[in-house]
């Protein structure tokens, strides 16, 4: 564990906490894309299939449980909680997210490190995570009405991706044989998707103004 990896995990954790705080305390999910949250739930479910069979550390298992539990509970809140679900921007959040899954699955079947059930699903989760933010970014662009918590949630998620890239660079230079092209390229694509959002986030932060995206 290096400092970049830890910082990445902590920003990831913080992003989830910010979102849960918004949903649980303010009882609102306005501006949050259910499509993206459903994709994340699938990402964690397929990536952490090995949670019972392979043990790395208590830290890892605990974090996996947190990400699984939080992603499914966020989906539950948005779909079924009587107050929260009323605040969901159903009409704006129309990205056809299921269509992202098929290409990711096909790509995972074609490009993977090992052709086994667990390995293909694990690779699928990497590809799907790379594009899972798209419905959220489209929703932001449409509503243009971004409250602070939603902005911070996406900012922290992007931060998590950025720190993971630094972690990979660090590990590449400090650990022999640490080469994982699939993880890196999927991670890089994912981080690039945030670039536009980051640009406007920093602009609003610099000018001390509310975050607004151009039409």
């Amino acid at each position: 564990m290096n400092i970049f990896r830890l910082a990445g995990d902590m920003t990831h954790l913080a992003s989830v906490l910010v979102l849960l705080l918004k949903i649980h305390t303010i009882k609102s999910c306005a501006g949050v894309s259910l499509k993206t949250q459903e994709l994340y739930a699938i990402v964690f479910a397929t990536r952490y299939l090995d949670i019972l069979t392979s043990f790395v550390s208590i830290y890892n298992t605990l974090m996996k449980l947190i990400f699984l539990g939080s992603s499914f509970s966020i989906v539950w809140y948005m779909k079924y909680h009587k107050t929260v679900r009323r605040t969901y921007d159903r009409d704006q959040d129309t990205f056809r997210h299921w269509f992202l899954m098929l290409p990711c699955l096909l790509l995972a079947l074609l490009i993977h490190e090992k052709f086994t059930f667990f390995e293909v699903l694990w690779t699928f989760s990497l590809y799907l995570e790379a594009v899972a933010i798209l419905p959220q970014l489209v929703l932001l662009q449409r509503t243009r009405n971004i409250d602070n918590l939603t902005g911070q949630y996406i900012f922290l998620l992007g931060g998590y991706r950025g720190f993971y890239i630094l972690n990979w660079i660090y590990r590449y230079f400090t650990e022999p044989h640490y080469v994982h092209w699939i993880t890196w390229i999927a991670g890089l694509v994912q981080t690039l998707l945030y670039a536009d959002f980051f640009y406007y986030y920093f602009l609003s932060w610099k000018n001390n103004k509310k975050l607004q995206l151009p039409a």
Binding site: D50, V56, N60, W122, N167, E175
Partner: peptide, 10 residues
């Protein structure tokens, strides 16, 4: 064995 390294990430 190399592959196990990646699995230690989240």
């Amino acid at each position: 064995e190399e592959h196990e390294e990646t699995k230690d990430e989240l």
